[in-house]
Design a protein around this nucleic acid. Structure first.
Lengths: 335, 335
DNA sequence: CTGTTAGCGCATTCAG
DNA sequence: CTGAATGCGCTAACAG
């Protein structure tokens, strides 16, 4: 086998006895080519092991048919789900998705946005780290199509996909109120995080409407250990009916703290988490939670991007997706 | 601002009053350019918002400075760690990493390998789905540098990074034997999976050396629920000192089943998991486990790839990384 | 359908 | 350092 390492379209054409334009058509506009010649060309492609050069394709057309996604953190399953949704929608439209992991590092995010722009991807989907979006803004000035997913704020000059965080907080609070809770605690780690602050507003709305009590307690972070510590503090200080947590591990920690104090969840205390991590369903006391529609968010983001690719001057919009209440044992004493 | 959407290197050159070759040098060989002109060129780049076109660069040089990684499943944190390690090593060498998620779908994996080849990436790192590696083999015939990570088998014509699965099994078994266990159970879900079968060999080796007893029990899958079911079955049928599980959720399920039967872990029963998922440390009974060195695997894979880029004819080798025993409460009655 | 060609943006080379 | 020229592999447009 002494064939060239990288045969070109011309080599294929020669071997198949056709013009280069015909090979290009077989690749890109098969319907324009007669069945018989198409078969002959495809055979030549196989025999030579021809792989088309996307660098050249992209250079000619100005844009590739790949979409770049920069993700804040692949360690968080929400963003993996978003990527899955985006990928499915991309594949359905003949695009492919390449992912770059910013790993919670803002400079890295900026670098990757720049790299995707250099690669002349068709567009970019960004699930951003907190911080300025300089690279994205600069790229957009050069007309790079881009969508923001799960960003702290919406942007009028950009399409965005967000989650209704306030509604998530409301759902959680309303649920425990419906179960009879009157003295609620919101275990708010990082009130600086806009998502956690927004959920708080939904919680306050539900609590106010029900005429119940709400106390805001700061947790150190979103971990199980932090839930254990905060749980011990809360539960030993005053009487509480329900603890609303902004993460599932935090909720699990609170449940453990309750057990340590001889309190039973859900009989003596209701606890609800957030995110629906896959272990929430299968912990010792299955944890009620609020689920974010990651796949749908990804699908929607890719849909918006495809719209923008079709019509670069389309009117930007922000799609707000709805979280979903998942009821499990930790908030259902009667079950 | 009526500047062109995509200024080219010539535009930059004109604005800076230099030759195009000089701009190219500023970008690629800064040391060849005098300080003063370099500054002038960089200023022109900023003013024009120039972004170099990697399609053109790649077309000229034949290869881009991006590495493509195709991952079996981003939902599994081991592979996210591998990606992190690979990315760190890539960045240190001036490369960037793009990730494609095969999502346990073999055809998708093949497609993405092909796409990376079409994009003329510098090389590919593949953490493969079970199944034939046709796309990769074909690409390698065209001299695409490629590394395999965590594949079921090593391949002599390719560099590979593997984990010593047998050693992982050995470590787990030896540890519970050291703790005095004599009647061991290996809860082997999917004996078809080569990793699980290999660990079995290590377990058998340790058990044989100690003259202890081993029973192999099939679990349905690697989930908590499966651990609960299998746990109830095992523990009600016969006396067991230790259960070795090929996943942490499975171990958690067994611990829950033990509690349901009035058995205390670790006092009446030792349980050990695998993978060191982040919740294993923080479950009610912290779970001993065997950790796979994901970051190291990724780093090593990228290192091998860089070697192959420097010397395409280097001798291929397989690096076997070592798993690590993580001892927690579920196997330490005295602690 | 064929055969030919221009040009995408860049890196590289060469003489000056 | 300049200035000019070449070609990477492909697409698209042309006349036949």
């Amino acid at each position: 086998m002494t064939r060239p390492a990288n045969p070109r379209i011309q080599d294929v054409a020669r071997r198949a006895g056709v013009a280069t334009g015909t090979v290009s058509n077989v690749l890109n506009n098969p319907h324009k080519v007669a069945e018989s010649t198409r078969v002959r060309v495809e055979q030549a492609i196989d025999e030579l092991g021809f792989v088309r050069n996307n660098a050249a394709r992209t250079l000619v057309s100005g844009r590739s048919d790949t979409v770049g996604m920069v993700v804040i953190d692949l360690g968080n399953s929400l963003f993996v789900d978003i990527a899955r949704g985006a990928e499915a929608a991309a594949a359905a439209a003949g695009f492919h998705l390449w992912i770059a992991n910013a790993d919670l590092d803002h400079p890295k995010q900026e670098t990757y946005v720049g790299r995707f722009e250099e690669a002349r991807v068709a567009g970019v989907i960004l699930a951003p780290v907190d911080g300025p979006l300089d690279a994205l803004r600069a790229a957009r000035r050069r007309r790079l199509p881009a969508i923001l997913v799960n960003a702290p704020d919406s942007h009028p000059d950009l399409c965005c996909v967000m989650v209704d965080e306030e509604q998530g907080g409301f759902l959680a609070a309303q649920h425990v109120l419906d179960q009879g809770a009157r003295r609620l605690v919101y275990l708010a780690a990082h009130l600086g995080l806009s998502a956690i602050a927004r959920r708080r507003r939904g919680i306050e709305r539900a609590v106010a409407a029900a005429g119940a009590d709400l106390e805001i307690v700061r947790a150190k972070d979103l971990s199980i250990v932090s839930g254990q510590e905060s749980g011990r503090r809360i539960l030993s200080e005053s009487a509480v009916d329900a603890v609303i947590c902004p993460s599932d591990p935090l909720a699990i920690g609170v449940i453990q703290a309750a057990a340590g104090l001889g309190l039973s969840v859900p009989d003596d205390l209701l606890v609800i988490g957030y995110d629906d991590n896959h272990f929430a369903a299968e912990s010792r006391v299955p944890v009620s939670t609020v689920s974010q529609p990651g796949r749908e968010m990804g699908r929607t983001a890719m849909g918006l991007l495809l719209e923008e690719l079709r019509d670069p001057d389309h009117v930007h919009r922000t799609v707000v997706t709805q979280p979903e209440l998942i009821i499990r044992q930790s908030t259902t004493p009667l079950a």
